[in-house]
Nucleic acid binder design. Structure first.
Length: 457
DNA sequence: AGCACA
């Protein structure tokens, strides 16, 4: 099994922030010590201590970004590390832009309620039911739901604390009416306190979050948030830390591009773990997860600006996603998780999973899904019956093309000689190793047609 | 030695 192999990945290239993340702090490091540490570089206006499982991390926020930059820069080049009580302290930019002190005990009335729904699974209570229940007390602006150790929780934003208080007083300790819940739910007590939030930051309408004040907010197709637009830093430059997950935008989509197409294309560079596709305006986007950043970087470099099909069709644009591990259904029309065996497709050539066996071989050695989903030589014009050829394990290296969805081709814009898609070599194994930094060299057997002129543009 | 509340 190759479930997201490796350790959690940390980003070493970080966007500057006036908030710094400090770790390896001594036990019970005081706020004064933190302020003292930052004093040579600027004014620390906020801190948050006792962060992390060991409570030995902290955040400090400078009044100005440049002060934070100077501190990070100083210790990056200093021979003496930052220290507190003689203990080396490791300093990085935080991945947030400000410290939010959440020392609310839940008793200070605010316009946002924190609702814990006891005794239910997250899937039992829909966001629409929550909305219905709490709308009885006033306009619900936003809802965000999440699962924590405490259980299924929701943040519910009202206009003001008076409305929130009314809802809290009426509903705390009560239950959601049974008729609004699945039959198997027996008890459903609400425990309500106040959140320290005043305005929730909802990025997408999804099954877990809603913004009722903004009907134009994009709908998130599969709860994959925050990856659709590359983030833009304060200076307007794209900040795009490397990631093992690529975001592929497909432009000029004259032909149908399926998950299988994506899988075949990207498998040329390594094991594809997961894929999610979704529509974006008129085009299409895909998130493609590799086991590691290096593989993703190679694929990104090799594929950027190239076309899946000859003739400038289905041009790929790659960027790094902020995701590192996609949360997708194993086998739906919009997603695949190749890291878990798919038993729903009998006849699919899946290598037997022996307990304790070494992880699956790299994609170029054995990629059953990719190969099996691409029976060879099934081209748009090559099968008059329009049927997919049966999978033939011996059919390796043959040219194949992607059978388009019926009606996907409004016309045949070019002749047979040029109609060969670019990535049909499902059976032609790429070289055993792509480890060498061949930079611009396209790996043999990677998306290109054997015996055809190169079709990269 | 690795990020706070989704």
């Amino acid at each position: 099994m190759s479930s997201s192999s490796g350790q959690p990945q940390f980003r070493y290239t970080q966007t500057p922030s006036k908030v710094l993340h400090l770790r390896n702090l001594p036990w019970e490091c005081t706020e004064e010590e933190l302020v003292e540490l930052g004093k040579p570089f600027g004014k620390i206006v906020n801190t948050k201590r006792d962060v992390g499982a060991n409570r030995n991390q902290a955040f400090v926020e400078f009044s100005d970004l440049n002060q934070a930059i100077s501190m990070v820069s100083y210790y990056a080049s200093s021979s003496e590390p930052a220290q507190v009580r003689g203990k080396t302290v490791y300093i990085q930019y935080s991945n947030r832009q400000e410290i939010v002190n959440n020392k609310s005990t839940g008793d200070i009335a605010g316009n946002v309620l924190l609702v814990t729904i006891e005794g239910v699974e997250a899937g039992d209570v829909s966001i629409d039911v929550i909305h219905l229940v709490f709308s009885a007390f006033g306009f619900v602006h936003k809802i965000a739901t999440f699962e924590k150790a405490a259980g299924f929780q929701a943040l519910i934003q009202f206009t003001d604390s008076e409305t929130a208080s009314a809802a809290r007083n009426a509903l705390d300790g009560r239950s959601i009416p049974r008729y609004l819940l699945p039959e198997h739910v027996n008890s459903c007590h609400l425990r309500i306190s106040y959140s320290a939030h005043t305005d929730l930051n909802i990025k997408f309408q999804s099954h877990r979050s809603r913004d009722y004040t903004n009907p134009y907010l994009p709908v998130n197709p599969s709860a994959i948030e925050g990856t659709l637009q590359p983030a833009v830093g304060p200076d307007g430059k794209r900040k795009e830390p490397e990631s093992n997950v690529l975001l592929a935008s497909i432009e000029n989509m004259q032909y149908a591009v399926t998950i299988d197409t994506i899988h075949t294309v990207f498998s040329a560079f390594g094991t594809v773990q997961k894929i999610a596709i979704f529509e974006k305006n008129v085009g299409m986007q895909a998130l493609v997860q590799y086991p590691d950043v290096t593989t993703a970087a190679v694929a990104k470099e090799a594929l950027e600006g190239h076309c899946i099909y000859d003739g400038g069709y289905c041009k790929l644009h790659l960027s790094y996603s902020r995701h590192t591990d996609l949360n997708v259904k194993a086998h739906s029309d919009k997603s695949r998780d190749y890291t878990i065996p798919d038993n729903s497709l009998p006849g699919l050539l899946t290598s037997p999973q022996v307990p304790g066996a070494p992880p699956a071989a790299p994609a170029w050695q054995s990629n059953p899904q990719a190969v099996s989903m691409f029976p060879g030589n099934v081209g748009p014009q090559t099968r008059p019956d329009g049927q997919m050829a049966a999978w033939d394990p011996n059919m390796r290296g043959g040219r194949s093309s992607f059978p388009p969805a019926p009606g996907a081709y409004p016309s045949q814009p070019y002749g047979p000689s040029s109609s060969m898609p670019m990535y049909p070599t499902s059976g032609a194994p790429p070289p055993p190793s792509y480890g060498g930094m061949q930079s611009n060299a396209r790996p043999a057997g990677s998306p290109s047609v054997v015996g055809q002129p190169p079709m990269y543009y």
